[in-house]
Design a protein around this nucleic acid. Sequence first.
DNA 1: CCTAATCTTATCAGGCGCGGCCTGATAAGCCCATTAGG
Length: 175
Amino acid sequence: MAQDSSSNRPMPQKYRRNRTKFTKEQLKILIDTFNQMPYPGYATRLRLALEIDTEEPRIQLWFKNRRARYSFQKRGEQKEALESSQDPGQDHLPEQIPHEQVRQCRTIYSRSQLHALIKAFRKNPYPGIHCREQLADDIGVPESKVQTWFQNRRSRSGVQRKKKIPDESFGQGQG
DNA sequence: CCTAATCTTATCAGGCGCGGCCTGATAAGCCCATTAGG
């Protein structure tokens, strides 16, 4: 049943989701796919998730992190390759990256789902993994959707976590 | 330490309904985001 939900929790025991540990075989498949297709669409990600027995959001995140590291790592090599072939006419643009353009279907939230999301957001715009999973379970959507919803919501409602604003605050002086 | 998880920002794109708004999904982060867990 419902446990304490409106209690103020000083600090969640664990905010982040458990770190995923890929096996070598999983990594081999991931890397192999990445080399051919750094921007897999949803269908491909799903297939990969099934193949290596993990969740699609893990796949998506892995590709994102991989791209972030791989791109700048390869920076020098590409430049070298370009200089090698001094051809005025573009023969082989590196932009032929196969973006699979197939996005995941847009989620249509019902009124009650939105209500639950908004309510949770007002309570805490930065829910930890447990909170997100609980909410996802409550309204019947994957946790990754909840995370995306919160990110978009934060972005568009200006509740961004106060970074390190020196002292521009409107407060009446910190004691 | 390595790198998965997280955050912000910007942009693409689907649904609705008829021009453009709302908002979910995706990508990048710059001398290459930051944080933190095994």
